[in-house]
């Protein structure tokens, strides 16, 4: 088998006048966590629905573990576990009844069913709650059950649509841990999210999607470094009128460094835009020492995926989220 679990080539999907996906191409390697990142309405859910064979593409080629979704949709369905954004547990059924239900839908034999149910329950921390009805479970526990139902047949590919939407902080962290555990077991995970922290925390690769197009794709760290912009902020100690000169001197000195892109003065602080703080910091410290400039604090920040999104799409992610809500 090839090591590419998801292969999407020139995928297009149009809903009336709305272009949901506009010539998308991407690949997901086996055993990695891939994140499709973008605001609501960017086309993420459409992409997942095509991968789960629920929506037919207008054009393009989509393969899951080497199987074309149009040629053999049934085989694709048996290769994936799909956990939609909405909770889909049945309030009347117990935890265990849910897993039995899905075990039968995935045609597991009676012999493997029981161990698989234990395994799925264990993975999401629901062991001991087999007989509780979903109606009486908290929202977070329902989500865990939903996840377990998607794992019962040990699919090579798990598709998670907004896995932590509406969950409180500790459940979110739990869900992230399960996703990381799946990866350890060799499962490939394809997730959609509009949370930057989720993508940063989990994903080996992300593709930022906006208006149905992939704006940029790559490892989160690589995307950040493409911005080539770390910010170092130097605060001078005992700042007064006299020291203002020192700040100007320092600014002049660091501006000569090749690695420095721009500087701005801000009160007692000098903000220095650099390509990479690892290389820039020692050089800046050396300058301050040789000029005998006393330093109170020195901090640096690297851009998050928020800035990456802003950089590649020209607008902030959060603003778009509010507009769609």
């Amino acid at each position: 088998m090839s090591d590419t679990v998801v292969r999407i080539e020139n995928l297009r999907k149009q809903y009336g006048p709305i272009t949901a996906l506009d010539d998308i191409s991407l690949e997901v390697e086996r055993g990695t966590i891939f994140g499709l990142l973008g605001p609501n309405g960017a086309g993420k859910t459409t992409a997942v629905k095509i991968l789960t064979t629920l929506v037919r593409p207008d054009a393009g080629k989509v393969e899951v573990a080497g199987t074309d979704i149009l040629k053999d949709p049934d085989r694709v369905r048996s290769l994936i576990g799909y956990v939609p954004q909405e909770l889909t547990v049945d309030p009347y059924l117990t935890v265990e009844e849910h897993l039995r239900y899905y075990a039968d839908l995935y045609h597991l034999s009676a012999a493997v069913r029981e161990p698989r149910i234990r395994e799925a329950l264990g993975l999401v921390g629901l062991a001991g709650q087999e007989d509780r009805r979903a109606r009486y479970l908290s929202g977070g526990t329902k989500k865990k059950l939903d996840l377990a139902c998607g794992l019962i047949h040990r699919p090579p590919l798990i598709l998670l649509d907004e896995p932590s939407l509406g969950l409180d902080v500790h459940v979110r962290r739990d869900v992230w841990n399960y996703v990381l555990r799946l990866k350890e077991q060799g499962t490939t995970v394809f997730l959609c999210t509009n949370y930057m922290d989720e993508a940063e925390r989990l994903c080996d690769e992300v593709a930022i999607i906006d208006h149905g197009k992939i704006a940029v794709a790559g490892a989160p760290a690589a995307l950040r470094s493409q911005l080539k912009k770390d910010v170092i902020s130097v605060e001078i100690a005992g700042f007064n009128e006299h020291e203002r000169e020192k700040l100007a001197t320092l600014e002049k000195a660091v501006s000569q460094l090749a690695i420095v892109q721009a500087t701005t003065k801000d009160g007692a602080r000098l903000k220095i835009d650099v390509e990479s703080n690892e290389i820039a910091l020692p050089q800046i410290l050396e300058r301050t020492a040789s000029l005998s400039i006393p330093i109170r604090t020195i901090t640096y920040s690297r851009p998050g995926l928020d800035e990456v999104f802003l950089h590649f799409t020209g607008r902030p992610l959060a603003e778009e989220k509010e507009k769609d809500a």
């Binding site: 789960t52 064979t53 629920l54 085989r75 049945d90 839908l105």
Partner: peptide, 13 residues
């Protein structure tokens, strides 16, 4: 309405 049917249809049934 609640999405369960779509999920059901994503299984190989």
């Amino acid at each position: 309405e609640n999405g369960s049917l779509l999920r059901l249809m994503s299984t190989p049934i």
